[in-house]
Simulated scan of single mutants.
Amino acid sequence: MYLEAKETARLYKLLSDKLGSDTTEAMFKYIDNKTERSVEATIKTLATKEDLAKVKYDLSKDIGASVKWMFIFWVSQLAVMLSIVVLMLKK
C-alpha cells in the first residue's frame, strides 16, 4: 500500500507539472470514479453463498424429477418388451 501511495504521489506530481493541477485532479477523480463503478458492477455480478445454495437445491430437485421420469420410462419400456415376448411365445 505504501508503494502505491508513493507511486501515485509521484505520478500526480509529474502530471501536474505537465498538465496543470486542475487537469490532473480531474483525471485522478475520473479514474477513481471509473474504478469504483467497475468494482461495484463486479460485486453485483458475484454469486453469494445463498445464490449457490439455491442453484444447488434447484439442480438437485430437477435431477431428482428427471430420474423419476426416467425410471417410469424404463419400467414402462420393460413392461412393453415383456408383453411382446409373452405374446410371441404364445404363438
Rank of each mutant, 00 (worst) to 15 (best):
L59A: 00
I84W: 09
Y2P: 00
V85M: 12
T35S: 10
T35R: 11
I72V: 14
V80N: 01
K44W: 15
S21G: 04
F28I: 12
E4F: 11
L82N: 09
E36I: 11
M88K: 14
S83M: 07
K56H: 01
A26I: 10
D58T: 06
A41D: 10
R37E: 10
A79Y: 04
S21T: 13
F73T: 03
L52D: 02
S76G: 02
E7Y: 07
I43V: 14
A53K: 05
M1G: 13
M70K: 14
I84G: 00
Y2E: 15
L46I: 08
L82V: 14
A5W: 08
M1D: 04
I84Q: 02
F71T: 04
M88F: 15
Y12L: 15
I84D: 00
A65W: 00
W69R: 05
Y30I: 12
I63D: 01
T8D: 13
D22L: 07
A47E: 15
E7Q: 11
K91P: 00
E7L: 12
S66K: 12
F28A: 15
Q77A: 09
D32C: 14
A53V: 02
L89C: 07
S16A: 15
W69I: 07
A65S: 03
E40H: 15
N33T: 13
S16F: 14
E36C: 10
N33I: 11
D58E: 14
A79M: 08
M81G: 13
